[in-house]
């Protein structure tokens, strides 16, 4: 159980924990904005796991100069970069649709929205 091992796996554990907590929140919360918040948490967790999948300890950030020889994988970072911006746009759409739905049903509680029952 070296420090490097702990460093490497604590990142993955954080990402997995965030995904599971966000999923639990999406399934069990009742206020529509709480569901949007849980969705954002799960999004953050997925981004963490994606970046972690290209991460190797004891390497440098992928910016090459004369002193850097070994770097981490730049591909997951590039994908996550776009994923974060799209995530916030999707969250904005989620909030707007949620506001409209709560206006229509008169309450922010999803138990009063017939279309969202499960």
């Amino acid at each position: 159980m070296s420090a490097e091992y702990l460093f490497y796996w604590s990142m993955a554990a954080t990402g997995l924990g965030l995904v599971l907590i966000g999923l639990w929140g999406v399934l069990t919360r009742k206020h529509i904005l709480r569901i949007a918040l849980a969705f954002t948490l799960a999004d953050t967790g997925v981004n963490l796991i994606l970046v972690w999948s290209g991460f190797l300890p004891n390497r440098a950030a992928p910016i090459i100069d004369s002193s850097v020889t070994t770097v981490v994988d730049p591909l997951p970072q590039a994908l996550v970069l776009t994923s974060i911006v799209i995530g916030v746009a999707v969250a904005a759409l989620f909030v707007v649709v949620g506001v409209l739905a709560s206006r229509k049903s008169g309450s922010a509680d999803i138990r009063h929205m017939k279309e969202l029952r499960w």
Binding site: M11, T14, T44, N47, L48, V51, W52, F55, R59, A60, A61, P62, I63, V71, V72, Q77, V80, L81, I84, V85, V88
Partner: peptide
């Protein structure tokens, strides 16, 4: 955490957006 994982680009984006 992104900064610790050697991803400064992602860290900047997440800080300003998230």
């Amino acid at each position: 955490l992104f900064l610790l994982m050697d991803a400064p680009d992602v860290a900047i984006t997440e800080a300003s957006i998230g």
